[in-house]
Design a protein around this nucleic acid. Structure first.
Length: 556
RNA sequence: UGGGGAGUCGUCCAACGGCUAGGACACGUGACUCUGGAUCACGGUAUCGGGGUUCGAAUCCCUGCUCCCCAGCCA
């Protein structure tokens, strides 16, 4: 179904076959500087999936080396999202900041070995000395300091004797290296800032490059899986590990996920949240895990998606339609069906007895007979969908129009006798007659109708707000647009709030996160804005709509 | 340009020198249908270019081209 094993699974299988490890250890290492998104979900599924498939465990480690950008809120959100996705790291919750003392001692070791030095250059000077992609860098005067002086200075850095940015600790590698990452990279910077996990214990913080490889080594990670941009850093991690003489995890890089019609960069997502472009990190239009959850995505659908997109090394952009497909596939099988009318128009059955209320038995899910049926009240005045009525039908339109007969799902066949319009020409009510012999939805003479409509008894329906969503951006690849331009690509119609909707009374007690299929409309879930007698639904994804395609063909 | 990667249907992934280059999504056509849903059937389109090795190349070699990443005291 999903093809063969991906290249990482092949590597792991080969390592295991070669007897390199008794069991594998992988890790998911987020920086708590934002919320997790669907791209992280790919990594989470990959790492936890590997351990589950080959036997082993997966650590959750926060790579919290930059206190300026990290917050406890993000740590909490990340844990919540990983758990919700269905993964359990057990007791293996780690923080790079818990390794700070060890990292500090290792830094001293490198200094003693003559492989690290304290540098007094400013950031600008360091940049100037680094050279360019084609020209080698040049060493600065501090590069040749004595071990004693370096040790002393480094200790004073830790003691807080210098202001932010005054000095750094740098690895002494090769200022002329073809790989610029090897031109004496910074290992420590002075940052007088509290840390969300380490508190105020430190005023010098290790860089990611200095912390990451050793953190993996400390944890005995066998396969350290990361994204492509770290490929050029691997030689540096190897250099550190070799210099320290400690265990080498095997790093494997894969291509990060990109999705059409959305952005995945944390910086841009943060900007959308801060500027109030969206309702927050969990806005249903966001590609964040929490946004997808609020939108109505299920962990099952996201996991299936992660499985189907595969894992490879080439840059790619996955069609968001595949994500939507995975959700439909999951929900089609298990979402209870309900009736909801989003843009109501009154349907009056002129020959139906006033005051009569019938109860019709409607299947909860035709895909799953075990889900049973429910009773839905029916009466003379009903709400139906505005788009299910036309005064003049376009080509291939076979819903309600004067003279045409349709079925009201599980109820009766009705024939339209006329429409009522307001001053603007909009249809506000429809008149029809019903065929009492078609009770239950089919006629004794076996005559067929092309359309089946959903409906709600006016006297029994309950009001609700429904939010419809569309792509956040108008173009398939907004992430490819550089500069501030990307903002102009936001879809002004990505959210549409409908406040005059009606739903089945059975939906009144629905709880946040419960999902349903509103027949003929799509899959919907209860939004957390619901409460008391206020009901708010989010449309998770539409049903596939053959009529919409047909209509588009005849559109102007 | 220095270093590091990557090029296969519209998209994503597979094919690991050997059937007509496969699957999924998307798209199109039809069947069926008490959701214009679901389901089913059918269909089209791909090996970056040029050489070479071989009985045989998407796969190996040479060469060219294109794209991505790296010049944070971000990760």
């Amino acid at each position: 179904m999903a093809g063969g094993p991906n290249f990482i699974e092949e590597i792991v299988a080969a390592d295991l076959a070669a007897g390199k490890h008794a069991a594998i250890v992988t890790r998911f290492p987020p920086e708590p500087n934002g919320y997790l998104h669907i791209g992280h979900a790919k990594s989470i599924c990959l790492n936890f999936g590997l351990a589950a498939k080959f036997g082993g465990r997966t650590h959750l480690r926060f790579d919290d080396t930059n206190p300026l950008k990290e917050e406890q809120e993000y740590i909490d959100a990340i844990k919540r999202d990983v758990r919700w996705l269905g993964f359990d790291w057990g007791e293996h919750e780690y923080y790079a900041s818990d390794y700070f003392e060890r990292l500090y001692a290792w830094a001293e070791q490198l200094i003693r070995q003559g492989q690290a030095y304290v540098c007094d250059c400013t950031a600008e000077e360091v940049r100037a000395q680094r050279g360019t992609l084609t020209e080698p860098g040049v060493p600065c005067a501090h590069r040749e300091r004595s071990v004693e002086e370096n040790l002393h200075l480094f200790q004073r850095m830790r003691a807080g004797e210098f202001p932010d940015g005054a000095r750094t600790l740098r690895a002494k590698i090769d200022m002329a290296h073809g790989n610029v990452n090897m031109r004496d990279p910074v290992m420590y910077r002075i940052l007088h800032a509290p840390h969300p996990h380490a508190g105020s214990a430190w005023c010098i913080y290790p860089t990611y490059d200095w912390a990451h490889g050793q953190s993996d080594s400390i944890e005995g990670i066998t396969h350290s899986i990361c994204t492509l941009e770290f490929e050029a850093h691997r030689p540096l991690y190897d250099w550190f590990l070799d210099a320290l003489g400690i265990y080498h995890p095997r790093q494997i890089e894969f291509a990060r996920l990109n999705l059409t019609y959305t952005v995945m960069s944390k910086r841009r997502l943060l900007e959308l949240v801060r500027d109030g472009v969206v309702r927050g990190w969990d806005d249903p239009r966001m590609p964040t895990i929490s946004g997808l959850r609020r939108r109505g995505y299920t962990p099952e659908a996201i996991r299936a998606f992660a499985e189907r997109i595969g894992v490879a090394k080439r840059d790619s952009v996955v069609d968001v339609a595949l994500l939507e497909h995975c959700l439909r596939e999951d929900l089609n099988a298990r979402a209870p069906r309900r009736f909801a009318v989003l843009r109501p128009v009154l349907l009056i059955l002129d020959n139906y007895p006033e005051g009569l209320v019938e109860q019709f038995e409607v299947p909860n899910n035709p895909e799953d007979p075990s889900s049973g049926t429910r009773l839905v009240p029916f009466s003379r005045e009903l709400w139906i969908e505005a788009e299910d009525v036309r005064e003049v039908p376009p080509p291939k339109y076979w819903r309600l129009f004067p003279g045409n007969e349709v079925r009201l799902r599980s109820a009766y066949l009705v024939r339209c006798t006329g429409v009522v319009k307001d001053a603007t020409g909009a249809i506000v009510a429809v008149h029809a007659t019903y065929d009492p012999a078609s009770r239950g939805g089919s006629a004794p003479d076996g005559r067929r109708v092309r359309a089946t409509l959903h409906w709600l008894s006016r006297a029994h329906a309950v009001p609700a707000e429904v939010r419809l969503y569309d792509h956040l951006f108008t173009v398939p690849d907004p992430d490819a647009v550089a500069g501030a331009e990307w903002r102009s690509l936001l879809n002004p119609r990505s959210e549409e709030v409908l406040t005059t909707c009606w739903v089945e009374a059975a939906l009144a007690g629905a709880t946040v996160g419960e999902f349903f299929q509103f027949e003929r409309l799509g899959y919907f879930t209860v939004d957390p804005d619901s409460g008391g007698d206020r009901l708010v639904f989010n449309r998770s994804v539409t049903l596939k709509d053959a009529w919409a395609k047909e209509a588009a063909k005849h559109a102007p």
